[in-house]
C-alpha cells in the first residue's frame, strides 16, 4: 500500500516537472482507475477483514453441531471448551513453556536451513559444475517425507534438541535451495552483459546485479521454508519430545482430551500463519517497491 501511494505521488511530480516531450510517455503507468479523487474512507481498507468471515461462520456452525449433539463432546469439544482449556493452560503458565520451546525449535531450525539453503543455492546457481554434481542428489532427497527422517535422526543425534532442530532445518532447506538456485541461474543474460561491458568484475556483479535480481526468489524460498519448518516441527515433537505444541498434541490423545488436541492444532495454525504473514511482510517491503 505504502509503496503504491509513493509511486503515484512520484509520477504526478514527474508529469508536473517533465520536459514537455516526455510528459506524454512518462505518465503511462499512472493512468489506472485509482488515480482519480479517492474518497477518504476507502472500502478496500476493510477488505482483509473479509477473510475472517468464513472462519467465524465455521466456529458458529461448529458450536451448534456440538450443542445439538451431532458430534459427541468426547470426539469434538465445543469451541468455548477449547478456549477455556487454552486459557487455563495460559493462566497457569504451562502453555507458554510449550509455545516457547516450539518457537525456539522452529526459529533455530528454519534459520539453519535458510543459511545452508542459501549457500548451496548460490553455489549451484552460479556454477554449472556444482549444479551438475549436487542438484540431482538434492532433488531426490527433497522427496523424502519428513517423518521418514525421524528414526534416523533419533539414532544419530539422540532425542535431544539437536535432532529436532536438524530435522526442521532439513525441511526449511529445500525450498530455499531450490528457489535461490533457479533464481540465480535465471538472472537476465542481458543484465549480465551490462555488468560485463562496464567491467564490474565478479564480486561487484554478484553484489550489484545477481543477488539483487535473485532476492525475490530467495524470499519466496524462505517463505516456503518457514512453512515447511512448521510441518517438520510437528513430526519431531509428535514422536520424541516432552515439551512443545506437538507434544501437547500427542499428550492430548494419550489423555483422551480432544480439547487439548484441537487447541494445539489451532495454536499451530495461528503461529504458522503469524510467521507466514511476517515473512510475507518482509518480502513485500524488500521487493514491492
Amino acid at each position: 500500500m505504502a509503496a503504491d501511494t509513493r509511486r503515484e505521488s512520484d509520477v504526478s511530480r514527474e508529469s508536473d516537472s517533465g520536459t514537455g516531450s516526455e510528459a506524454g510517455g512518462s505518465v503511462h503507468r499512472s493512468e489506472s482507475p485509482s488515480l482519480g479523487p479517492v474518497p477518504l474512507p476507502s472500502p478496500d481498507r476493510f477488505r482483509p477483514l473479509l477473510g475472517l468471515l468464513v472462519p467465524i461462520g465455521l466456529v458458529v456452525v461448529w458450536h451448534f453441531l456440538v450443542a445439538t449433539g451431532v458430534f459427541a463432546a468426547y470426539q469434538l469439544p465445543a469451541p468455548l471448551r477449547v478456549a477455556e482449556t487454552l486459557y487455563g493452560m495460559a493462566a497457569s503458565g504451562e502453555l507458554w513453556d510449550h509455545v516457547a520451546i516450539t518457537l525456539q525449535r522452529v526459529a533455530l531450525g528454519a534459520g539453519l536451513g535458510i543459511i545452508v539453503g542459501t549457500v548451496f543455492g548460490t553455489l549451484t546457481g552460479l556454477s554449472r559444475t556444482a549444479s551438475d554434481l549436487l542438484d540431482p542428489l538434492l532433488q531426490s532427497l527433497k522427496n523424502i517425507p519428513s517423518l521418514a527422517w525421524v528414526p534416523l535422526f533419533l539414532l544419530w543425534f539422540g532425542i535431544g534438541e539437536t535432532a529436532k532442530v536438524l530435522l526442521i532445518a532439513v525441511g526449511a532447506f529445500f525450498p530455499v535451495y531450490l528457489n535461490l538456485s533457479t533464481g540465480i541461474a535465471a538472472v537476465d543474460e542481458e543484465l549480465l552483459e551490462v555488468a560485463e561491458v562496464y567491467d564490474l568484475g565478479r564480486v561487484e556483479s554478484l553484489r550489484r546485479v545477481v543477488f539483487p535480481a535473485a532476492l525475490p526468489d530467495l524470499l519466496v524460498g524462505i517463505r516456503g521454508g518457514v512453512g515447511l519448518a512448521w510441518m517438520f516441527v510437528v513430526a519431531a515433537e509428535l514422536i520424541a519430545a516432552s515439551q512443545g505444541i506437538g507434544f501437547l498434541l500427542s499428550d492430548g490423545r494419550a489423555l483422551a482430551r480432544p480439547d487439548i488436541i484441537v487447541g494445539s492444532i489451532l495454536l499451530f495454525a495461528f503461529l504458522g500463519n503469524c510467521s507466514d504473514v511476517a515473512v510475507k511482510e518482509v518480502r513485500d517491503r524488500v521487493v514491492g517497491r
Binding site: E22, S26, R29
Partner: peptide, 14 residues
Amino acid sequence: GFAESHPDQLSGGM
C-alpha cells in the same frame, strides 16, 4: 530531479 526514481517510473525515452 529523477535521481531517486526507479526505472518503472520512467518513460521509455527517459
